[in-house]
């Protein structure tokens, strides 16, 4: 079983992902026998979609602080962050809030 997701990158995040803002992906519905959630999605993206500089995307077990994550246009902090179980058709947005110098 696979889940279809729409992934969007913004605020410079797209530079790490072949400079493409929008990606339609299919990921396995379960990881190690557990339903796929945002944490497992982040690692799936790192292994399958990320092209460069993974330290700008991942820090420890989650995204680097300063990256905004939206699930169907809702801040993921309101949805349980990494524990949110992704559903078929979900739209997940990653925006870097880091700018300037």
């Amino acid at each position: 079983m696979a889940i279809s997701l729409k992934i969007e990158f913004g605020g410079g995040m797209e530079l790490l992902f072949s400079n493409e803002r929008s990606h339609n992906i299919k990921i396995p519905a379960t990881v190690d026998g557990k339903p796929a959630n945002l944490s497992s999605l982040i690692f799936w993206l790192k292994d399958n979609l990320l092209k460069e500089r993974e330290e700008l995307f991942i820090e420890g077990e989650t995204v680097r602080p300063g990256i905004l994550v939206l699930v169907n246009d809702v801040d993921w902090e309101l949805e349980g962050e990494g524990d949110y179980e992704v559903k078929d058709g979900d739209e997940i947005v990653f925006i870097s809030t880091l700018h300037g110098g």
Partner: peptide, 20 residues
């Protein structure tokens, strides 16, 4: 910064954001 980025995202503002 987070609020401003959220605002820009939902208002679909055209802005530039990358680290130097």
């Amino acid at each position: 910064e987070k609020e401003i980025v959220m605002y820009a995202y939902f208002k679909k503002l055209d802005y530039f954001s990358t680290e130097c």
